[in-house]
């Protein structure tokens, strides 16, 4: 089943949704948003693509296997926690850089953790949905 409307709209929607997911990710520290919601929105974009063009096409657009995303996300999150350990603080303590970056504000390990969550949520959601779609 292919729908011209859906497949045309998806071409525009996927990049928009990815941008929106990044916005949610960066906004998340003090406001509603964060890695989890951002990751879900990004995953939804790819699922939409899979609905319009098929799972294989979506996997091509994603370029890497969702499993790799899970691993990278997990390592990111663990790494952000381990950074605190190296400076003698308990695991997962937030460390902040001293100066502000224009758009992002102060950057610290919680952002790295959130990026890890984001990547991992994309990976897990897509792994589940792709394998369900292939059933």
């Amino acid at each position: 089943m292919t729908s011209l409307v859906l497949s045309t709209a998806t071409r525009f929607l996927l990049p928009l949704m990815l941008l929106f997911s990044l916005f949610l990710l960066l906004r998340g520290h003090n406001d509603p948003g964060g890695g989890f919601v951002g990751g879900l929105v990004a995953a939804t974009g790819f699922v939409l693509y899979a609905l319009a063009y098929g799972v294989e096409a979506a996997q091509r657009v994603l370029r890497v296997h969702p499993r790799v995303l899970i691993a990278i996300g997990l390592l990111c999150a663990l790494g952000s926690g381990a950074l605190a350990c190296m400076s003698g603080q308990p695991f997962l303590t937030g460390l902040w850089s001293g100066y502000e970056i224009p758009v992002l504000g102060k950057v610290g390990t919680p952002l790295v953790f959130d990026v890890g969550v984001y990547v991992m949520v994309v990976g897990v959601t897509l792994l589940i949905i792709f394998s369900l779609a292939e059933e």
């Binding site: 899970i70 390592l75 695991f91």
Partner: peptide, 24 residues
């Protein structure tokens, strides 16, 4: 050592993530 009590969780998770990368 404040890191010691989390290591038994962190080590297997890290190994699991690296093993996922080494899937093939």
């Amino acid at each position: 050592m404040t890191i010691l009590p989390v290591l038994p969780v962190v080590i297997p998770l890290t190994v699991a993530a690296v093993s996922l990368l080494a899937w093939r």
